[in-house]
Write a protein that binds this DNA or RNA. Structure first.
Lengths: 346, 346
DNA sequence: TTTGGCACTCTGCGTAAAGGAGTGCTAAGG
DNA sequence: CCTTAGCACTCCTTTACGCAGAGTGCCAAA
């Protein structure tokens, strides 16, 4: 499959892709020889280009235009040609400084991450909020809003506050609630939500629970409160950067993309894919499997807390993206967030 | 100032504005006489149009185009010509049905309101989240994230959860925190945050507090937790509808507007203006005082809970908006939300 | 006061022509 | 055998021009 290209062809392909990334214009043989230190005549370059087109790495929009990379071209570029430069300390500092504010809690931090990704890259920043099930139980509180409605407020180890409205069949007194709260906070702190749920299930079947009415209701309430029925949430920042990409100057197509963003579900799915991966993931165009995003690429990386992966973050932009500069930005941001979550509260 | 126009001129102005709202095209004298039941010759209409232009209600983009309304024209239309049709029960039901889901807590409801405003109107929906200071104290909880960091989680009467990270100078034990929490929850429930703050200030100066170390710290912590330093927050839905407005087909100008949305602060300011007003407010173009929004209009209304105004909601779109259909939508949504907040939890 | 008529203006659109960038092919050269 | 210069060809883009259409302003007549 991944047939190795002759060295020269690779060099030319690389030059074409980088030129196209920089200019958004089809790249011709002449301009290549001028600007990219290629010591060949335009005619030779043309031969190679024809060959690369044959192999599917390039296309020309019409007979007498230059070439532009195909998805396969970008994929090859990302997989084998690209060498990512590390960030210099100035850039690192620029990113890091955004998190140095005081009183930044986790939700602020995630929003800040999305915003920083966006402003630094000049593309659209994406940060997935950790799913309930991967977070670690720190504290739960039940607030009775009406006799049958209880608001469960739940704080994770890293300081993320989530809440859920639970409807109950049978009224609970303030005293009952207090006891349930105390019980949960004393037995469950430090466990992951998955563990908490497992614990609840086993305890529910144990003798004690069968006879203790209150305990039974405690379990019912808390398992209802900890069901993760949400489809996930993401923080999107910098949609406006899309509007400056020449490839989306068509309003029709632009609108489809912005709508996709607003809907969120597709982006959630795409970020989900990066959850189990290590390092930076690149999803190019149709690899997203969504026709709405056929001209968009994502660069994502997972971030983690003390106890494993919490979520993913990244940026989305047109296929024609400066991968070499974006990838380290995403990578560094993910590791930074991971560090902050690891060391923050212990 | 508001010189009364002759009846006939008003009719023609109204027809022009409505035609322009419908078509986004400059309106000519001929097409007016054709479609709007105006029993005059084009020539007479032209005379009136020239007069209206003289008075500043209309402009023509160039010599041989039709006329389009100026801001002054829209303002006159909204203030004196416009008659808002009430919603029929079908439309009301369509809006109402969005809130009939179970397990909808306040934050979901506000998001839903923004989304519904947007989809029904086909413009961009805006909902301001109630400021901390206007909400009513229901429950507070302090979760210690690290020795010096305390996450204050705060539930309002209507079930809105807000939280804030407080840095403290002196460590507090779990027991201390528990006592403080109990104290606050017992004495403050049902008061507005402003009242709570006032109460804290007076009690702090009273004898008891001077000698009780814990109490003093309780006050310090809770007043820090209840300071409303946030600039407010709004929920924006349906930005993509902007992309289908012909007046914003220029990407440059489009981008400025979307950026303004992302920044939020300007929209917050504009929604703030409607806080003390009764009924529906219309802000047209430069009345916003922001050049970025010179071609945008807002239609807003305040919503309230049991104890007075909580926030505002509305929609934003181009100046050329079908005010007669949007105004009742905003009005009805605001009253619906107010009702839901009034009767929901008592 | 209203209206028909008329000359005028400006936009928008389609066609045509010129210019330019790039290609593919061929044949000569190292 | 690979490389390169030359050349004809293609197709897009820009510019120019003319023309139709819509609308205006003004004047004179009803």
């Amino acid at each position: 499959m991944a047939k190795i290209l002759p060295d020269r062809s690779q060099k030319i392909l690389e030059a074409i892709i980088e030129e196209y990334i920089a200019t958004a214009q089809p790249v011709g043989s002449k301009s290549l020889t001028r600007n990219h230190g290629i010591k060949l005549s335009p005619a030779s370059v043309r031969n190679v280009m024809a060959e690369l087109e044959e192999l599917g790495y390039l296309v020309s929009p019409h007979t007498s235009a230059g070439r532009i990379p195909t998805e396969k071209g970008y994929r090859f570029y990302v997989d084998t040609l690209l060498q990512v430069n590390d960030l210099n300390s100035l850039q690192k500092d620029q990113i890091e400084s955004q998190y140095r504010q005081h009183g930044l809690q986790m939700s602020d931090m995630l929003r800040e991450a999305s915003r920083t990704l966006s402003t630094i890259s000049r593309y659209t920043g994406l940060v997935m909020v950790p799913r309930l099930k991967v977070t670690i139980f720190r504290h739960i509180e039940f607030v009775r809003l009406s006799p049958r409605q209880i608001l469960a407020v739940f704080v994770t180890q890293s300081g993320l506050v989530q809440n859920k409205l639970v409807e109950i069949d049978e009224e609970l007194t303030s005293r009952d609630l207090e006891q349930i709260t105390n019980y949960l906070n004393h037995t469950m702190t430090g466990l992951s939500i998955q563990e908490v749920r497992a614990r609840i299930v086993t305890e529910m079947t144990q003798e004690k629970a069968l006879y203790d009415h209150l305990l039974r209701r405690a379990f019912a309430l808390s398992s209802a409160a900890l069901v993760d029925e949400s489809t996930g949430d993401i923080i999107i920042e910098g949609t406006s950067y899309f509007l400056e990409q020449p490839e989306f100057s068509d309003l029709k197509c632009m609108k489809r993309i912005v709508q996709t963003f607003e809907q969120k579900s597709i982006l959630i799915d795409l970020l989900d894919r990066g959850l189990d991966a290590v390092g930076v993931q690149v999803i190019i165009g149709s690899e997203t499997k969504y026709s709405e995003l056929a001209d968009c690429s994502l660069i994502t990386a997972a971030y983690s807390g003390k106890r494993g992966t919490l979520g993913t973050l990244g940026i989305i932009g047109p296929n024609r993206m400066p991968y070499s500069t974006i990838i380290p930005i995403v990578e560094y941001t993910a590791s930074l967030i991971s560090n902050l979550l690891d060391t923050d509260n212990d």
